[in-house]
Design a protein around this nucleic acid. Structure first.
Lengths: 221, 221
DNA sequence: CTTTTATTGATAAATATTTATCTATTTAAC
DNA sequence: GTTAAATAGATAAATATTTATCAATAAAAG
């Protein structure tokens, strides 16, 4: 069966597991660069610290194009830069957040996003008592203004923190207005046309892994 | 190389990707059971709705032990029950939340956890103006009381929503007191002894996938 | 009652991902 | 300057995961 079109195939040249590990290295490298800076680091060292294998680290780094030196390792700063550029985190992308509830507010207040080149420039909500307010310095606007704002500002990323029941409707609005990527925190599968990127953040999936492992651990002793 | 001990091998009999997909089915099945109940559903239908393949759905369901009937499909209620029991979501597990900041508060207020058999019974923090307060009906206690509370109540799950800088210290405290599983939302890798389950929730990993895909999408057109 | 069809369940193939091995290089020590 | 050791990079093997194929079954239609 022909599963993927050409664009998607190019995307998938980088395996998703690799993409998901890169930020882990990134966080670690930035941390040591702050806490105990040193010029070079070896794959073996990174692997030991992050509880993985040197080969995997080396392979993962290879996809970013970073180059090391035999007998010495990689330049820490170069690794950080290489990951940043590879993921496009070197220049900020603007995003709108839709749904200023508990989770939405938490994300609005999360300082870490700027390290990943993500800048939430405004939030949208339906609730009258939120509209017009500010949360962590970000304006909360009426969701009615969303289509117009997307068109005017050309923002490409929508962070969807609305309830499950509104998620699809809001997705359609965003897509029609020109949003290209949706980071979905609502606990439902949303559907979007071909070519729109939907990244589903499902707490339940992580919890499932934890639950099952814990159940087995507690049962087998 | 001998990579895993016996306990871990048993755990890994269920591939992680499968575990991560089960909640997606679960959410979908519960939704249709609420919105438009029907007795039976086929893999083909589920796959179409969730934009995946019938074979994958069938294989995933097989691990839960759910059985279907040829020509008809699976009983919706049985599927839901099978997933619930398989993941241990049928009877509630108690958890403590450590770090009542933005994200911690959001999780305290999240109503969805009870569907997944997770019950956060209290929160812990260091900040004097949070200690003694309640957030969404959950008491916030001093982190100093944490070891004692874990020992007394036998709670096995810790949800770690503290800052990166405290994460390891708090992990050690929890592990010493008897916590068996840590759901880590702090943006650092934490280390724990063998036999302790650490589930790392890294927003940056998901964002990396989204960032890279969006960058490629925007570049290739 | 027989045939057709939709569907599961089992088996097999293909693909993706991880892990291991080997080679070349470069630094550091002698 | 030569040798030894550590390390990246390339290639190959092993493993895990996904996808396809086929056979069995039960419901529905004729």
């Amino acid at each position: 069966m022909m599963k993927q079109n050409v664009v998607e195939m190019t995307v998938n040249v980088i395996p998703e597991p690799v993409l998901r590990r890169l930020p882990v290295y990134y966080q670690y490298l930035r941390k040591i660069n702050l806490d105990a800076p040193k010029e070079y680091i070896s794959c073996a060292r990174i692997a030991e610290e992050l509880n993985t294998l040197a080969i995997q680290v080396r392979k993962d780094m290879a996809v970013t194009g970073a180059q090391g030196r035999p007998r010495v390792g990689y330049k820490v700063i170069e690794l950080i830069k290489a990951i940043e550029i590879f993921l496009g985190w070197n220049n900020a992308s603007e995003a709108y957040l839709i749904g200023a509830g508990n989770l939405g507010s938490a994300l609005l207040g999360y300082q870490g996003f700027k390290d990943y080149g993500l800048n939430i420039i405004a939030a949208f909500d339906v609730s009258a008592d939120k509209i017009g307010s500010e949360i962590y310095g970000k304006k909360v606007l009426s969701v009615k203004k969303l289509p117009d704002m997307i068109k005017r500002t050309g923002v490409k990323i929508g962070i969807l923190t609305a309830s499950a029941s509104c998620a699809q409707e809001l997705t359609d609005i965003m897509v029609n207005a020109g949003i290209k990527a949706i980071w979905n925190f609502a606990p439902v599968k949303i559907s979007a046309p071909e070519g729109i990127i939907v990244q589903h953040e499902n707490l339940a999936s992580s919890l499932a892994v934890l639950s099952k492992r814990l159940a087995l651990l507690l049962a087998e002793r």
